[in-house]
C-alpha cells in the first residue's frame, strides 16, 4: 500500500515561509481532508509532493520514493492541481489522450474516465466552451487516468453544481473504499465533513492538527442538548438541581451546554417534566475548526508581542 509521507518539509519564497517544518503521513484506505484557509500552504505542499517545486528543506515521498523517480508516475499518482490546466483550444479527449500516451496508459482509459466523470457527450468539444464545473470534472478525469493508488485533489468541488458535489463525495468514498490513498484539500468545512475520515489542518504553513475527523470535532466542541418542554419552570428547576446550565431561545427551545441526551432525558423523566423534543446538537467541523484557528490566532498574537 502506498502512502504520502511528508518529513520536515519547508518551502521559502524569498523571505516568506509558505510551508514550515511540516511532517505528516497520508494513509491509504481513507479520505484525508486537507484543511486550512487560503494561503495556508495546501497547494504548495501538493506541488512539493509532486516534485514541481523544490523544497527549501525536508522531503516529500510517495511509498518511500520521491515523485520524480517514479516510472510512468500517472500510473501511481493522480493529481488535480488546477482546473485551467487543459488548453482551451484542445478537445477534452485530445487533452487526455496526450497525457495517456506520455505514460503509456491505454487509450481505452481515456474513454473510461470521460464516462466516469460524465463528460462523454462533450468529449469532442473544445475545453474553452466548458463551464468551471466541467473543467473540474476534466481535471478529475486526468487524475484518474492511470488508475493510480494515490489521488490528490486540490479544491475539487470548486465550481461544481449540487449534483456534482454529491457525485464527488461518492467518488472520494469509493476511491478510499478501494484502498487508495486520497488527499483532498478544501477550505469548505461542511463539504470536507461530508467525505473525510481524517484531517490534516494547516495554518500559515504549519501543521495545526493531524487527527481522525471525529476526534478532532469531539475534542474541540462541547456537547449540547436541545430540549423543548411545556413546563419551563419545572425543567429549569430540575436542570438547576443537577448543575446544568440552560439557555432559552426565541422560538421556545432550550440549549443545555456540556450535556448529553442520556443525562438530560433521565433528569427530565425523574422530575416528571413533559418533553416535546430532546436531541443532541450535532457538533460541526466548522465549529471545531474555528475553535482551533481562534486559539492559533491568539498564540501567534502572543508570540508577536513577546
Amino acid at each position: 500500500m502506498t502512502s504520502i509521507e511528508v518529513q520536515a518539509l519547508t518551502k521559502e519564497y524569498g523571505t516568506s515561509r509558505a510551508v514550515a517544518d511540516l511532517t505528516f503521513t497520508v494513509l491509504p484506505g481513507r479520505v484525508t481532508g486537507f484543511l486550512g484557509p487560503n494561503g495556508a500552504g495546501k497547494s504548495t505542499t501538493m506541488r512539493l509532493v509532486l516534485g514541481l517545486d523544490r523544497p527549501t528543506s525536508g522531503t516529500a515521498t510517495i511509498g518511500g520514493r520521491a515523485y520524480a523517480t517514479l516510472n510512468e508516475p500517472l500510473r501511481h499518482v493522480g493529481a488535480l492541481l488546477d482546473a485551467q490546466a487543459a488548453h482551451g483550444s484542445r478537445t477534452a479527449r485530445d487533452h487526455l489522450r496526450a497525457l495517456a500516451v506520455s505514460n503509456r496508459v491505454a487509450v481505452r482509459r481515456v474513454d473510461e474516465v470521460l464516462e466516469e466523470t460524465g463528460l462523454t457527450s462533450v468529449a469532442r468539444r473544445r475545453v474553452k466552451t466548458y463551464s468551471l464545473g466541467m473543467r473540474q470534472r476534466l481535471g478529475i478525469a486526468a487524475a484518474l487516468l492511470g488508475d493510480p493508488e494515490v489521488v490528490m485533489l486540490d479544491e475539487p468541488s470548486n465550481g461544481l453544481d449540487p449534483e456534482g458535489i454529491i457525485w464527488i463525495r461518492a467518488l472520494l468514498r469509493r476511491l478510499a473504499g478501494e484502498g487508495r490513498t486520497v488527499l483532498v484539500s478544501s477550505h469548505l468545512m461542511n463539504e470536507t465533513a461530508s467525505f473525510a475520515d481524517h484531517l490534516v489542518v494547516l495554518g500559515r504553513g504549519r501543521l495545526l492538527a493531524d487527527t481522525p475527523m471525529r476526534e478532532f470535532i469531539d475534542a474541540r466542541v462541547e456537547p449540547r442538548v436541545r430540549v423543548r418542554t411545556t413546563d419551563v419552570t419545572a425543567l429549569k428547576a430540575a436542570l438547576d438541581r443537577h448543575g446544568h446550565d440552560a439557555v432559552e431561545h426565541e422560538d421556545g427551545h432550550w440549549t443545555v451546554r456540556h450535556a448529553r441526551v442520556d443525562d438530560i432525558g433521565r433528569i427530565a423523566s425523574q422530575a416528571g417534566v413533559p418533553l416535546l423534543e430532546l436531541a443532541a446538537e450535532e457538533a460541526t467541523l466548522e465549529q471545531a475548526y474555528l475553535d482551533l484557528t481562534a486559539s492559533e490566532t491568539e498564540f501567534t498574537a502572543q508570540r508577536q508581542e513577546a
Binding site: 508516475p73 499518482v77 492541481l81 482551451g88
Partner: peptide, 18 residues
C-alpha cells in the same frame, strides 16, 4: 507557450517529471 497557460506545465511535468 501553450505550456505556460494556467498551470498546464504542472500537469505536463507531473506526467513527465524528467
Amino acid at each position: 507557450s501553450s505550456e505556460y497557460h494556467g498551470g498546464a506545465l504542472r500537469l505536463t511535468l507531473a506526467a513527465v517529471p524528467q
